[in-house]
C-alpha cells in the first residue's frame, strides 16, 4: 500500500484533531465537552499517528511515558481534591471566580479545570497504554 497519502494527511489532520480536543476541553466548562472526551479525541489523534507511522517513530515524536502521564493526571485530580483539606472545607470542594485580564477581558476561572486537566491526562495515558500494550507485540 502506498502510505504517502495517509502520512501527508495525517501530518495535517493530527494537529486539527488535537486542537479540536483542546477546544472540547475548554468547552466543557459550560457546554458539552470536558476532560474525558477531550482526552479520547487526543488519544485518537495519537492513534492515527501510530497507524500512519510505526511505534518507534511515534515514540520519538512524543517522547513521554504514558504511564507517567497517568500518574501526573492522577496527581492533578488528587491535588484539587486535597486542596479542600488545606482550607478545611470538604474534600473536592471547588473554588471559582472572575478575573479581569488584559487583552482577554473578563475570564472566569475555576479550579474544576485543574481536575478536568487531570482527567484529560489520565484518559490519554490509559488509552495509549492499552493501545501500546496490544500493539507492541506485533
Amino acid at each position: 500500500m502506498n502510505e504517502l497519502i495517509l502520512r501527508t494527511v495525517t501530518a495535517v489532520v493530527t494537529f486539527i484533531i488535537i486542537l479540536f480536543g483542546i477546544q472540547l476541553f475548554f468547552a466543557g466548562h459550560y457546554y458539552p465537552g470536558g476532560g474525558f472526551i477531550a482526552g479520547l479525541v487526543t488519544a485518537g489523534a495519537i492513534i492515527l499517528l501510530l497507524l500512519a507511522f510505526d511505534i518507534k517513530t511515534v515514540r520519538s515524536m512524543i517522547p513521554i511515558s504514558y504511564r507517567t502521564l497517568i500518574g501526573i493526571g492522577l496527581l492533578f485530580a488528587l491535588g484539587t481534591g486535597l486542596g479542600g483539606l488545606v482550607f478545611d472545607v470538604p474534600f473536592l470542594t471547588h473554588a471559582h471566580g472572575h478575573v479581569m485580564l488584559p487583552l482577554l477581558g473578563d475570564v472566569s476561572l475555576h479550579t474544576a479545570v485543574l481536575f478536568d486537566l487531570g482527567v484529560y491526562f489520565v484518559v490519554v495515558g490509559v488509552t495509549m497504554t492499552i493501545i501500546e500494550t496490544i500493539g507492541e507485540e506485533e
Binding site: V126, T127, I130, T133, I134, E137
Partner: peptide
Amino acid sequence: ILTAIVISFGVTAFLLVLAYRSYQ
C-alpha cells in the same frame, strides 16, 4: 451514565487486552 460509561470503557479495554494476552 457518564460515570458508568467511563467505567465500562476502562473495564472493556482491560478485558480486550486480557483476551489478547490469553489468546497469545
